[in-house]
Nucleic acid binder design. Sequence first.
DNA 1: GCCAACGTTGGC
DNA 2: GCCAACGTTGGC
Length: 172
Amino acid sequence: MRHDRKFWLFKSEPSCFSFEALQRSPGGCAHWDGVRNYQARNYLRDDIQPGDGVLFYHSSIRQPHVAGIAGVVKGGYPDWTALDPGSEHHDPRCSVDNPVWYMVDVCFVAPFPVKVTLEEMRGQTSLKGMQLLRKSRLSIQPVTREEWKTILQMGSLAASVVELMLDSLKEG
DNA sequence: GCCAACGTTGGC
DNA sequence: GCCAACGTTGGC
């Protein structure tokens, strides 16, 4: 069993890219591209590894919530949308030699039988330390194993089963 | 739609 | 390298 798995929360506006859209993507997988914040970039480039668990969070809607679980299948590599003049994420400062921005690949793992809303998370004493509930507008945030387990429990997902699914994702 | 929080830009 | 101005995020 792997002991170095990390956990993350990825934010997305569902009108832009939803958890359901990830599920419908080819193979249930997609590039997590377009991130244009240095702190988030550093996590993508340096820390996020295949097999890591992702809480897929829907932001900027009436009831913000964690919609489900995704898994990382490919660690950080250059985000080519930054080089594409036709992309809305184009960044003219970037080149092949200096990509600046990075992305990872994620795959659908499991939806929450019960969506975990921001409001419910705020009500959980054990989640008081979560970055999401404190300051950050950061779109990629680390999540502790304890926070991960609490949120899975709130959403009626068995953490042990999800870990097995993340293991199998990692193995291909 | 408002606005607080906060990241980025650019003049000095 | 400071910091004011400005832009963006995202909950409400």
